[in-house]
């Protein structure tokens, strides 16, 4: 029983990170994926900020849904509750980090405001409810999704740093070549679909 549960958690983790990659397969968080991926350093910062926020948000959102919304038959309020929760959470996390860990703040701080409306955060919270995950599974799913986001954005940033020195056809300079890169990455990630 216990090991079954553990295996299920691992499957959820891998499926969230690779098979249903949040950006390359579900198209959540495209804005920041394309917008902040021109340097590996910033991409890494953003990636870790996202891991932090998504994991925390999916834990709290799942708990609120389980213990407040579901027992009171208020499921239809989930969209409002979750978006407000995420907005508050990001502000709160920003304040806490600023107070207790200036080093972490200087690394992640600038990315935190960018996350509030990152659709991936709200998307994960809603998908957890839709899939009827318990709290631990939700946290693992959030962690996996965010890890998938981080992997994808760091890979894209690495490729983009290389592309800088390549001769790109004039029409494809700028965003088209980034999107082509994303397309090829999506094809590569498509290969993971037979993993599970």
């Amino acid at each position: 029983m216990n090991s079954d549960y553990f295996i299920k958690l691992i499957i959820v983790l891998i499926s969230a990170a690779f098979v249903n990659n949040v950006v390359l397969n579900q198209f959540l968080g495209i804005c920041s994926f394309v917008g902040i991926s021109n340097k590996i350093k910033t991409a890494t910062g953003m990636g870790f900020a996202v891991i932090f926020v998504i994991t925390l948000a999916s834990a709290i959102a799942s708990a609120i849904y389980r213990f407040i919304l579901d027992p009171l038959d208020l499921e239809y309020l989930q969209t409002i509750v979750f978006i407000l929760l995420i907005a508050c959470l990001v502000q709160f996390v920003e304040m806490v980090i600023k107070k207790f860990s200036p080093a972490l703040y200087s690394a992640l701080g600038v990315y935190l405001p960018l996350i509030t409306t990152n659709c991936a955060v709200l998307g994960v919270a809603l998908l957890n409810v839709e899939a009827d995950f318990d709290i631990l599974t939700s946290i693992i799913n959030g962690l996996g999704t965010a890890a998938g986001y981080t992997i994808a954005i760091i890979l894209l940033a690495g490729i983009r740093e290389r592309i800088e020195y390549n001769e790109v056809p004039k029409s494809f300079k700028g965003s088209p070549i980034v999107l082509i890169t994303a397309c090829l990455m999506a094809m590569a990630f498509y290969g993971f679909s037979s993993l599970l």
Binding site: S32, G35, I36, A87, P113, L114, S171
Partner: peptide
């Protein structure tokens, strides 16, 4: 880009911006 149509992604001389770089709020 090719047809030089007005768009946020092909303003000459500037960094392209697709979807505000994620900072919607």
């Amino acid at each position: 880009n090719k047809l030089k149509l007005p768009s946020a992604t092909n303003v000459p001389g500037k960094e392209f911006k697709l979807a505000c770089g994620g900072n919607c709020i």
